[in-house]
């Protein structure tokens, strides 16, 4: 089967009335086969029935942790950006005082605030 015939077969395989079993069989006949190596089964058994399973769980845990970290970090960055934008819109600038909410306050009023007099 030449490449153009294979292309036709691939496209026609997705027709709703095509027989998927026939298509997969034909593709297999044409050399479109997938398999793992000969020792695959032995290696799986070794990993399942040995300490390797614990290692896998640990790797999975690390993967999940790093994924969670990215999610939290991105959310945190988004919150900080929103906060900075809102400060800029309200105060007109982003200075240390505006971040602390002191940009419009006078020294006296802070003393009043702190002493209560």
């Amino acid at each position: 089967m030449n490449p153009s015939e294979i292309k036709k077969l691939l496209i026609s395989s997705l027709e709703s009335d095509a027989d998927p079993i026939e298509v997969s069989n034909r593709l297999e006949e044409e050399g479109v086969t997938y398999n793992f190596s000969k020792s695959f089964s032995d290696r799986v058994i070794d990993r399942v029935f040995s300490t390797g399973l614990i290692v896998t769980h640990e790797v999975e845990y690390v993967k999940n942790l790093s994924f969670a970290f990215y999610r939290i970090a991105l959310t945190g960055i988004a919150a900080i950006v929103l906060l900075l934008i809102s400060i800029f819109l309200m105060e007109g600038s982003i200075t240390f005082n505006s971040l602390l909410g002191l940009s419009n306050s006078h020294d006296e009023s802070i003393v009043c605030l702190l002493t209560g007099n």
């Binding site: 490449p3 292309k7 997705l14 079993i21 298509v23 997969s24 593709l27």
Partner: peptide, 24 residues
Amino acid sequence: LVNKALQAMDPKFRIIVTMRMLQG
């Protein structure tokens, strides 16, 4: 040819094609 075509597809379509075309 089949591998290249599959890898170029969007994963959500690729899975449908894999199930139908390769698994039957």
